[in-house]
């Protein structure tokens, strides 16, 4: 699979969880890439995605910044 195809797979997985209402709860970054923990605010269910592509890391990071901004606005 090309790296671009791998990125599309990872992006779809991230989008799927975000569309179901999950929030990024924690990120572990190491030599293998990023492990992104998601949590659903209603039932506390958890999911973890392993993001290995550079574009995938940019993608979830952009979503995280958006999430942080939204939660900041809500808190205000």
């Amino acid at each position: 699979m090309s790296e671009y195809q791998q990125f599309l797979v990872e992006r779809n997985k991230v989008d799927f969880l975000i569309q179901k209402g999950y929030l990024i709860n924690n990120i572990l970054e190491n030599l293998n890439g990023s492990y992104v923990d998601f949590i659903h605010p209603n039932d506390q269910s958890k999911e973890t995605l392993h993001i290995s592509t550079a574009n995938g890391r940019k993608y979830f990071s952009s979503i995280l910044i958006k999430q942080n901004t939204t939660s900041y606005i809500k808190n205000e």
């Binding site: 924690n26 990071s61 995280l64 910044i65």
Partner: peptide, 25 residues
């Protein structure tokens, strides 16, 4: 489709989520 994002902004966001994960939980 993504908003501009620098490495410094990304790392700040990662640090913030690490601090807030207990609150989200």
């Amino acid at each position: 489709d993504l908003q501009p994002m620098t490495w410094n902004e990304r790392q700040a966001a990662l640090n913030l989520v690490a601090q807030c994960k207990t609150d989200v939980a």
